[in-house]
């Protein structure tokens, strides 16, 4: 019976020939697989980034609104005008606050999902976290405008619960309060936190899931309290996830231009400034210079994170 089967099987066509080709030249397959995405990344993504950078070194003729295509640093100098600096600082503070807010809210949820949720409850968790992402972003933001409005659900609920005093006290805090939640920086913050929360929970949960249960037991075994375990073991090990999540929340907040248009005080954020400068004012150089700001901030942020050892557990 064994004599019937040949030692070398016959080639069955193109698929076998290709398999043989890739087997003899393993790098060829890699090249075939990587070329399209690298082209995409290199030409489309980096290319547009380079074009953006180039634009930021042009300036605009203020009256006609036409771009003067001559190299100048004038546009960057404009960033340091008081009102533009305000925009940058306002955006930075909001992004930081949103990131911290998201992290604080996301951690218990992610921790529960990573440590305790099993089977059905895990599915419920994923569904619960992802569900808000499925509905239109605009619909969510408009819904929040109504929820937060002066004559909206929260005001109504606060009145019903006899908490109007509390709401008014919060709204009277200078800097974050306002006439109503919907027209206050606090409202903008709440909507940002809501919209970007899933982007914090998911990487956090993935990072926490990778922390073996025995690590936590070892910590307790060696005498650590829960708080000590959290500080010295869980947090450092979950840090890459927190950083990944914060990159999302931070950069998404910095780039967003819809939410501050609909909820808040009308004070500009970088995203809104970029949107208006390039879309409605036609000032592409200043828009580009503004757009470079988040990139620079993110680079600095990542460098600090790396120096602080946030990626050591990777």
């Amino acid at each position: 019976m064994t004599t019937q089967t040949p030692a070398i099987l016959p080639e069955r066509g193109l698929a076998d020939r290709l398999t043989a080709l890739f087997w003899r030249h393993p790098r060829l397959l890699l090249a075939v697989l990587l070329t399209p995405p690298l082209l995409w990344l290199g030409v489309v993504y980096l290319g547009s980034l380079a074009a953006l950078l180039l634009q930021s070194f042009y300036s605009i003729d203020e009256f006609s609104g036409l771009v003067k295509q001559e190299f100048t640093l004038k546009t960057y100098a404009e960033l340091f005008r008081a009102q533009n600096l305000d925009i940058i600082i306002r955006t930075l503070v909001m992004s930081a606050a949103v990131t911290i807010g998201c992290a604080v809210i996301a951690f218990p949820i992610a921790y529960y999902a990573a440590r305790f949720a099993k089977g059905k409850w895990k599915a419920v968790f994923y569904l619960g976290v992802m569900l808000p992402l499925w509905s239109s972003y605009l619909v969510k933001v408009y819904a929040w405008k109504l929820i937060l409005a002066k004559e909206g659900i929260i005001t109504w609920a606060a009145e019903g619960a006899g908490l109007s005093m509390v709401l008014n006290a919060i709204l009277s805090i200078p800097g974050i309060g306002g006439n109503s939640l919907s027209t206050s920086p606090l409202g903008t913050f709440l909507v940002f936190v809501y919209v970007w929360l899933p982007y914090m929970i998911l990487p956090m949960q993935a990072a926490l899931e990778r922390v073996p249960a025995s690590m936590l037991e070892a910590s307790a075994d060696l005498g650590a309290s829960r708080a000590q375990t959290f500080r010295t073991v869980i947090l450092p090990l979950a840090m890459p996830g927190v950083i990944a999540g914060s990159i999302f929340t931070f950069s998404l907040t910095m780039g967003d231009y819809i939410i501050p248009q609909i909820v808040g005080t009308s004070a500009r954020f970088i995203g809104l400034a970029v949107y208006q400068l390039q879309g409605t004012a036609g000032n592409i150089p200043l828009a580009a210079a503004f757009a470079v700001v988040p990139i620079v901030i993110m680079v600095i942020y990542l460098m600090i994170a790396k120096r602080k050892g946030a990626f050591d557990a990777l």
Partner: peptide, 16 residues
């Protein structure tokens, strides 16, 4: 001129 109207009004709305 108008370009100063643009940037100054952004400042006013920003509370400056």
């Amino acid at each position: 001129p108008y370009y100063r109207w643009v940037s100054d009004y952004i400042g006013v709305i920003g509370g400056r």
